[in-house]
Simulated assay, not measured.
Amino acid sequence: MNSPEIACGINVYCTGPDAADLPSALDDMAELGYSHIALSPISEDATDVAALKKALNDSGIRPIPMAGQAPQANVASADEAVRARGLDLLKSSIDLAHELEADQLNGVVYALFGDHQEPFSGERIAESARLVGQAADYAAQAGIRMTFEVVNRYETSMLNTAAQAIDYVRQSGSDNLFVHLDSYHMGIEEADIPGAIRSALPVLGYLELGQSGRGSLLTGSVDIRAAVQAAKEAGYTGRFGLEAFTRQLLVTGGANALAIWRRTYSDPHAVAAEAVDIIRSVYAEQ
């Protein structure tokens, strides 16, 4: 079976899209065999989009931008006007993804990141799904596949498991909304990571590999190889992603928001190479 496409998270190598070392990071990713880079959240106001496009085009690496929500623009809000602005924010993220010539958009698009004070009601989940479904249909018109990341209980109280995500897709009513599973979050929330991957296969659009300590995939409590093996055996043909964080390669606000308090690795090339080796070796097995 041919090895699938693999994306590398931008923060594996550098602080963000405006980092001076982004071009060299992109070249290293390309040399290792990555096809895509998963970007941190960006906006046209805060990012030199033209420079980013040039760096991507020069390297041959394609972008996977990230969308999110804001306190006053949130599809999961109890306030109708705030929900409407949340949909508008998603559409603007889709427009920016299209400008970057992306074919996929990731992110926690269904609620405000960090909102975990209490459970969401079924009504608010359903309304969030309906609006995100509209955004996904809008993305389809631009040739962009929209995925949403399932994160752990400390980052949201809305969607924490593959089962919840599958039901959310159903409620969205969109054929262009897909699930983004991350082995780091699954290590917290799922009793059976391979089983969760298999169950989500019909709507699984992105499988991200992250270790419990958020550093090297070779060191931690998550069986990364088993996750890749489960995807292969289930017939998964979508993209994989690598996500790793270390404090010295994050801006302070981002590091604090993600609770990355220490240096988890010092060699981005080695961490990126490990992920490619794991995926390729599993897919090379008969």
Rank of each mutant, 00 (worst) to 15 (best):
E5L: 13
E5W: 00
C8R: 04
P17C: 11
A19H: 03
L22N: 10
L26K: 08
L26R: 10
D27S: 15
D27C: 11
G33L: 12
G33H: 09
S35C: 10
S35L: 08
D45Y: 05
T47K: 05
A50C: 13
A51L: 14
A55G: 14
P63C: 12
P63E: 07
I64K: 15
G68V: 03
G68N: 02
V75T: 10
D79A: 13
E80D: 11
A84Y: 11
D88F: 00
L90E: 00
L90K: 08
K91L: 08
S92N: 12
H98I: 13
E99Q: 13
A102V: 02
A102H: 02
V109K: 13
Y110N: 08
D115N: 15
I125D: 06
E127W: 00
S128A: 04
S128V: 07
R130K: 14
Q134G: 00
A135W: 01
A136M: 01
Q141G: 06
A142V: 04
I144L: 02
F148M: 07
E149L: 11
V151C: 11
V151M: 07
N152M: 03
R153P: 10
E155M: 06
S157L: 00
S157N: 11
N160W: 03
A163G: 11
A165I: 13
G173Q: 04
G173T: 03
S174I: 01
N176G: 10
N176V: 08
H180I: 01
D182V: 04
M186H: 12
G187R: 09
E189K: 09
E189C: 09
E190T: 01
A191Y: 12
D192E: 02
I197Q: 03
R198H: 09
L201R: 06
L201A: 00
Y206G: 06
L207I: 07
G210D: 03
S212T: 08
G213T: 15
S216F: 01
L218D: 09
T219Y: 05
G220N: 12
I224D: 04
R239H: 12
E243D: 04
A244M: 03
T246F: 05
Q248T: 15
A255D: 04
N256W: 03
R262C: 10
D267A: 15
V271H: 03
A275E: 07
S281V: 03
